[in-house]
Computed example of a mutant assay.
Amino acid sequence: MATAGDGPWLDDPWLDDAAGRLVRPYTVSNGRTRPSTALDLMSQVMATGTAPVGYLGPEHEQALDLCRIPVSVAEVAAHLKLPAAVAKVLLADLVGCGALTTKPPVFHHHPTDRALLEAVLDGLRRQL
């Protein structure tokens, strides 16, 4: 099982050092594949300070913890080691209950500019 140096998922029974994630990613989002809020991979999300009402789940709590500062949807997905589609659903849940705010990405260049996309990819690689 996880050890003390493994991070915030220390008490997470769904992770195992040898086997990895013991729950399929889409189980985390209850099988949902479409977020209720439109989110781009480069959209910025940030915690509002409002506590979510009701139980959401450990992945929601981990995502909310990551969003104490503005962070992109792609970064949240990478940190949670979840597919972007699943991370978007979790983040949309948090936006829906008022725990997160979202801001669309601001492009100073064309959004499909190769240099911009390569810079994003390099940044994500450094995070992993």
Results as ranks from 00 to 15, higher is better:
Gly7His: 09
Thr48Trp: 08
Val76Tyr: 03
Trp14Asp: 15
Gly96Ser: 13
Pro25Ala: 08
Pro105Thr: 05
Leu66Ser: 02
Ala63His: 01
Ala51Glu: 12
Leu64Asn: 00
Cys67Thr: 08
Leu39Pro: 06
Tyr55Asp: 13
Glu118Cys: 07
Leu121Gly: 05
Leu82Ser: 03
Glu61Gln: 13
Val86Ala: 10
Leu56Lys: 04
Thr27Arg: 15
His79Leu: 04
Glu75Lys: 10
Ala92Pro: 07
Leu121Pro: 00
Ala84Ile: 15
Gly5Gln: 13
Arg125Ala: 11
Ser29Cys: 07
Gly57Glu: 11
Leu117Tyr: 02
Leu41Asp: 13
Ser72Trp: 01
Ala18Ser: 10
Trp9Glu: 07
Arg24Asn: 06
Gly49Trp: 08
Asp113Trp: 11
Val89Glu: 03
Gly96Phe: 07
Lys103Trp: 12
Pro70Trp: 11
Ser36Asn: 08
Cys97Gln: 12
Arg24Cys: 06
Glu75Leu: 04
His79Gly: 01
Arg125Cys: 12
Lys103Tyr: 14
Gln62Ile: 01
Leu64Pro: 00
Met46Gln: 15
Thr48Gln: 09
Leu41Met: 11
Met46Gly: 01
Trp14Ala: 15
Arg34Pro: 00
Gly5Phe: 08
Gly123Lys: 12
Leu22Cys: 06
Pro111Thr: 10
Leu15Trp: 14
Asp113Glu: 12
Ala74Cys: 02
Gln44Met: 12
Gln44Gly: 04
Ala47Met: 06
Asp113Thr: 02
Ala85Lys: 11
Val89Ala: 08
Val45Phe: 02
Pro105Cys: 05
Ala77Trp: 06
Pro52Leu: 04
Ala19Cys: 11
Val89Asp: 06
Arg32Ala: 14
Leu116Phe: 12
Arg21Ser: 15
Gly96Cys: 08
Leu82Phe: 04
Cys97Asp: 14
Leu116Asp: 03
Ala74Glu: 04
Val45Ala: 05
Val28Pro: 01
Thr112Gly: 00
Val45His: 03
Arg32Pro: 06
Gly98Phe: 08
Gly49Leu: 08
Asp122Tyr: 05
His110Lys: 06
Gln127Gly: 05
Ser72Pro: 00
Leu117Met: 09
Asp12Trp: 11
Tyr26Thr: 03
Arg114Gly: 00
Leu10Gln: 07
Thr33Lys: 14
Ala63Lys: 01
Ala74Arg: 05
